[in-house]
Design a protein around this nucleic acid. Structure first.
Lengths: 117, 117
DNA sequence: TGAACATATGAACATATATTCATATATCGA
DNA sequence: TCGATATATGAATATATGTTCATATGTTCA
């Protein structure tokens, strides 16, 4: 549904057009949404925060979180699919760590905002 | 449920304890989750991105998004409750803008990561 | 004060998704 | 190869939440 209560006159066309011009592509939007969504769920965010401190295997994370192995593995899969975490196998164990420096930057800035609210 | 498939031996206690020591408080976790959750939904993210370019009123945003006034107003309320956007009233019109510089920083870093994936 | 317009909001529904359960895959050691 | 252990994954369910609908609130102007 469109502007149900807004009349045309009340819309500032210049502002709308400016926003439209500077809008990111749908593709970029999807990726941006996906990044923030991955960080917006307690289990996944705790995983990412923990990996920001120390490399851990699936069982370590399950113990740390008090969560099931399956749940942790599912979420690690989600995080890995989008490059937020890396993994390396060592025998039967798979160790996870943060994917790139952008992730810890996002955490740092998020924390900064969280503290001052 | 806890570690269903993980045996005690497979857990690196030192790593788990390090993560536990450096863990943020539940309160901080809640706030951090909330920030990322607010940015993780297409309508809200588009709003925030648009406000990063130009101050807009509710009807501007509804027109820009092709969304209903009600939906936009609900989401602006969510964003405002957590300080991600500011508002100022001018007559019947309420103008919204970004809340603080952390928000645009998060967007910038998120975009940087989105582009290289 | 009353009409018109911009915005806000409560309740209900529809959809997305996190967890669980069951099981599959992968690696190591004997 | 077989048993044990660590991890991965498909399907189902339960929960969270975004949108809609209806309506309330707030502001201006005549």
């Amino acid at each position: 549904m469109q502007n149900d209560t807004c009349f045309e006159q009340s819309v500032h066309q210049d502002r709308v057009e400016k926003a439209l011009l500077e809008a990111v592509t749908p593709d970029q939007m999807d990726r941006l949404v996906r990044i923030f969504k991955l960080l917006s769920e307690p289990t996944r965010l705790k995983i990412v925060l923990a990996l920001n401190s120390v490399e851990m295997c699936v069982c370590d994370l399950a113990a740390y979180l008090g969560a099931s192995q399956s749940s942790v593995s599912h979420q690690l899969c989600n995080l890995h699919n989008f490059g937020l975490v890396c993994r390396r196998r060592e025998g039967q164990t798979v160790y996870y760590s943060l994917g790139d420096e952008h992730v810890s930057q996002l955490l740092a800035i998020g924390m900064a905002h969280a503290q001052e609210v």
